[in-house]
Nucleic acid binder design. Structure first.
Length: 352
DNA sequence: AAAACGGGGAA
DNA sequence: TTCCCAGTTTT
C-alpha cells in the first residue's frame, strides 16, 4: 500500500464513522450538490444549512430556480452575505436550462465556465455528483494538508495554491473521489480545527508533521492583512404615518449590489445635523416641500464588513405633503435588505 | 498579484 | 478583538 492510499483510506474510514448527517449528503443530484456548494462558499455549515433547506423547498429543481425573479432569490439569500453568489446562482440556473436543457454538464471544464463556479466548486460537483477525479481544496484542506505534511508555503499566494492543489490531487482516492473530498473537508471541520484541534484523538497523530514539530498553531501560513476603510452612511427614512416610505435598489458595483435600502446620503465623516441633508431631501425625495426630520440614533450604528466598517445614522422624515415613489412599509417583507437595514426596520417597527 | 465581496460564531 | 468559514470575481 502506498503512502498516498494509506492517507486516503484512513481518512475515508474515519469519515464513514464520523460524518455528520447533512441534508445535501443524501443525494447525488447535481442541482442539489451545486446549490449546497454555492451556499457554503465562505460560509459555515451551521449558517448555511437553513438557507439550503429554504431554497430546496422553494425551488425543487433547476427549472423552478431559473424561472424565479431575482428579487425573490435575493430575499431568500438575505442575511447570508456575498450576494453575488445569489445573482450568479440565478444566472447559472438560466444557462443550465437554456444551453444544457436543464441537464448539468459533467466535465470540470464546463462546470468551471459557469458563473460563480471556480476551481473548488467545479471539483466538488465533478467528484461528488459525477465521480470524477478532481480534488477539492478549501480552507479545511489547506489546514489538514499543511499540518499533516508540514507545508509552510503561504496558502494565499499562487505558489501555495498550486502546491496544495497538486498534493490534494496526488492524494485523491480515485475509486471514490467524492467521498475522499468530503472526508478531507469533514476531517478539517471536526478534528483538525483552526483552534484547539483534537490531536489526542486524531488518526494521524503518530505521523503528523506539525504535531511532532509543535507547529500546529503556525500552520497553515497565511500572509497579508486586509485594509478596512470607514464609511459613513446616512439613511433617510421617510415615514408617512406608518403607511409608506421610500426605498432604492443599489445598482453600483459596491457592497450589497441589487439589494434595497432607504435613500442613502454618504458622507466623509459623521453628520451631526440635518442641514447638509436638506438639499438632497428636497431634490430627490419630496414633491411638496415641508417635512420634519429627526435623527433616530444618537450614535452611529456600527456595522462591520470584511473590508469596511460602516457607521450608520438613520434620519426619520415625516412628510407633510406628497413624496416621490412611495413604497408601502408592508412591501418591505418582499425586498432583500442588508442585515444593517433589516435590523433597523425590525427595531423601528417594534416601537410603532 | 491584490483587492473586493457579508455576516456570524468561536476563542 | 481576531480569525475564518465547503471561494469567486474583478481590478
Amino acid at each position: 500500500m502506498t503512502v498516498n492510499s494509506k492517507f486516503s483510506n484512513a481518512l475515508i474510514m474515519w469519515y464513514l464513522i464520523n460524518q455528520r448527517d447533512l441534508p445535501w449528503r443524501s443525494s447525488k443530484n447535481p442541482y442539489l450538490i451545486w446549490l449546497s456548494e454555492i451556499i457554503l462558499q465562505q460560509t459555515r455549515i451551521a449558517q448555511g444549512t437553513s438557507y439550503y433547506e429554504k431554497f430546496v423547498n422553494e425551488f425543487i429543481d433547476i427549472f423552478a430556480l431559473a424561472k424565479a425573479d431575482e428579487k425573490h432569490i435575493l430575499k431568500l439569500w438575505q442575511g447570508l452575505g456575498y450576494y453575488s453568489r445569489a445573482r450568479n446562482l440565478h444566472a447559472t440556473a438560466k444557462i443550465i436550462v437554456d444551453k444544457y436543457q436543464g441537464q448539468f454538464p459533467e466535465t470540470y471544464a464546463e462546470l468551471i465556465s459557469l458563473k460563480g463556479v471556480g476551481d473548488y466548486t467545479a471539483s466538488a460537483i465533478a467528484s461528488i455528483a459525477f465521480d470524477q477525479p478532481h480534488a477539492v481544496v478549501d480552507g479545511n484542506v489547506y489546514r489538514v494538508l499543511s499540518r499533516v505534511f508540514g507545508i509552510s508555503t503561504p496558502i494565499n499566494e499562487s505558489k501555495g495554491i498550486k502546491e496544495f492543489k497538486l498534493l490534494a490531487q496526488k492524494l485523491l482516492h480515485t475509486e471514490d473521489p467524492g467521498t475522499y473530498n468530503q472526508a478531507l473537508m469533514e476531517f478539517g471541520a471536526l478534528v483538525c480545527t483552526p483552534k484547539n484541534p483534537k490531536c489526542d484523538s486524531c488518526i494521524f497523530n503518530d505521523s503528523c508533521y506539525a504535531l511532532q514539530k509543535r507547529t500546529i498553531d503556525k500552520l497553515p501560513v497565511k500572509l497579508k492583512k486586509l485594509t478596512v476603510k470607514k464609511r459613513y452612511f446616512n439613511y433617510l427614512v421617510v415615514d408617512d404615518n406608518g403607511e409608506s416610505t421610500i426605498l432604492k435598489q443599489r445598482h453600483q458595483k459596491d457592497i450589497w449590489m441589487n439589494l434595497f435600502e432607504f435613500p442613502l446620503y454618504e458622507t466623509e465623516q459623521i453628520l451631526e445635523d440635518e442641514t447638509e441633508l436638506e438639499h438632497f431631501i428636497h431634490r430627490d425625495l419630496m414633491i411638496e416641500g415641508t417635512y420634519s426630520i429627526k435623527k433616530y440614533n444618537e450614535f452611529p450604528i456600527l456595522h462591520k464588513l470584511t473590508h469596511q466598517t460602516l457607521y450608520a445614522s438613520f434620519w426619520i422624515i415625516k412628510p407633510k405633503g406628497r413624496f416621490k415613489n412611495p413604497v408601502a412599509w408592508e412591501d418591505l417583507k418582499q425586498m432583500a435588505l442588508p442585515v444593517l437595514l433589516q435590523n433597523f426596520v425590525d427595531k423601528y417597527q417594534s416601537l410603532n
